[in-house]
């Protein structure tokens, strides 16, 4: 008799706990505010339209910069006639080449990096902005002379960013596959990229997740000039240097 009552008390206690639990969840469910979607379509369309306008505007602005740079180069060429300006113009030409404001052609390699076509989409099977940053940093370290990714020239002010699933290079939207053009010594560059001790994280994902990484040597690579902005507002040449 005593055992039976004890057993029922135990069951009642479990049922009480479950009852409290269910009650708790029911209250949370009831208290959760109802999600009201005012108009999911309009803001999206509006943002998409704004983006399209801005993309078009960016193309237009970059074209304008190209035209202005060409005009300025022509005027500088004219100034070469003056003996006083000749040396400065030549110096400017060298700097422009060095900072990525001129077209470069020559030997080098082309690296293709793309999302895996085999594995399911996961953090390791897709190309990240960080991968591109690591590759660019690595290439400068092994003697690259000029680099572009999907024809966006990599210069001092270049940034490679990721906004959720969108990759922006020089603040211009781009998508995989990524074609990295590199001017430099083709054999050295190829050997360095293929060396298993380099770019280990990417190579691991190539092996395990099927991420695509291909390198080919090329004799005739053309890398376009940088067509973005180089606005200098805060940095001044240090007085002692002037």
């Amino acid at each position: 008799m005593f055992n039976l009552s004890k057993k029922f008390n135990k069951i009642s206690f479990i049922l009480l706990c479950l009852g409290i639990g269910i009650g708790f969840f029911l209250i949370i469910q009831l208290k959760t505010p109802v999600v009201r979607v005012v108009d999911p379509i309009s803001p999206y369309i509006s943002l998409q339209d704004t983006k399209d306008v801005l993309v078009e505007e960016q193309d237009h602005l970059k074209n304008k910069i190209n035209i202005l740079q060409t005009d300025i180069t022509k005027s500088e060429e004219e100034l070469k006639k003056y003996t006083a300006s000749q040396k400065t113009v030549e110096e400017i030409e060298n700097y422009k080449k060095n900072i990525g404001l001129t077209k470069r052609t020559g030997q080098g390699i082309i690296i293709k990096i793309d999302d895996s076509k085999k594995a399911e989409v996961s953090i390791d099977s897709i190309t990240h902005a960080a991968d591109l940053r690591d590759i660019v940093n690595f290439l400068w370290g092994v003697g690259a002379e000029a680099i572009s990714i999907n024809d966006e020239r990599i210069v001092f002010v270049s940034s490679i960013d990721c906004i959720v699933n969108t990759i922006l290079i020089n603040s211009t939207k781009t998508a995989p596959p990524f074609e990295i053009k590199v001017i430099g010594k083709p054999k050295d560059l190829e050997d360095q990229v293929n060396n298993s001790n380099n770019l280990k994280d990417i190579k691991k994902r190539v092996k395990n997740q099927g991420l695509i990484l291909e390198v080919i040597r090329k004799n005739d690579i053309t890398i376009l000039p940088y067509d973005g902005s180089f606005v200098i507002e805060y940095a001044k040449i240090a007085e002692a240097n002037e």
Partner: peptide
């Protein structure tokens, strides 16, 4: 161009 190329001291 000198500032961008890093060939001169800047402040």
């Amino acid at each position: 161009y000198k500032i961008i190329s890093g060939s001169t001291a800047v402040e």
